[in-house]
């Protein structure tokens, strides 16, 4: 991020400190909500990117890099791999590629609970979309 973006707006900084993590939490909620309510990997991934981008807008790049020492390009590869490999689960038992499995479990206290391989698949989408949006925007931002 160029130096021009190093702002000293106190209000902005303080609001971001809270909201960025609220958005992040929302992104995780949306991701899990996806199967039965509005949400899902794509929306969640975009929101994940938004929350991290907000941090980049507010603080300077070095600080964020120290806080989140990761290469977002790796997220894309990891995401695609997770989605592709989840599809293989079905082939082990002789079902076609990308067959999803799910079942309902009843847990004490939490009540009925659904476990599905679709969530894993969606997690790949979540990472891939988030990583793609991040590296595109950061590359443009970095370019001076």
């Amino acid at each position: 991020m160029s130096m021009k973006w190093k702002t000293n707006n106190l209000l902005f900084i303080h609001i971001t400190r809270v909201t960025a993590f609220l958005i992040l939490a929302l992104s995780i909620y949306l991701f899990f909500a996806g199967h039965n309510n509005p949400g899902g990997g794509f929306i969640g991934g975009l929101m994940l990117a938004t929350s991290i981008l907000l941090l980049y807008l507010t603080f300077d790049r070095r600080k964020i890099n120290k806080m989140l020492p990761m290469n977002y390009a790796n997220w894309i590869g990891a995401g695609i791999l997770i989605s592709l490999l989840t599809g293989l689960i079905g082939t082990i038992v002789g079902k076609p590629y990308l067959t999803q499995f799910f079942d309902y479990f009843t847990l004490p206290f939490f009540g009925e609970f659904e476990l599905t391989t679709a969530v894993l698949f969606d997690f790949g989408i979540y990472l891939g979309v988030g990583g793609s949006a991040l590296i595109i925007i950061l590359a443009i931002a970095e370019d001076t």
Binding site: H35, N36, N37, P38, G40, Y104
Partner: peptide
């Protein structure tokens, strides 16, 4: 196993 049909399609 999902009620959100958009997500199930995806």
């Amino acid at each position: 196993g999902g009620y959100n049909v958009v997500n199930v399609v995806l």
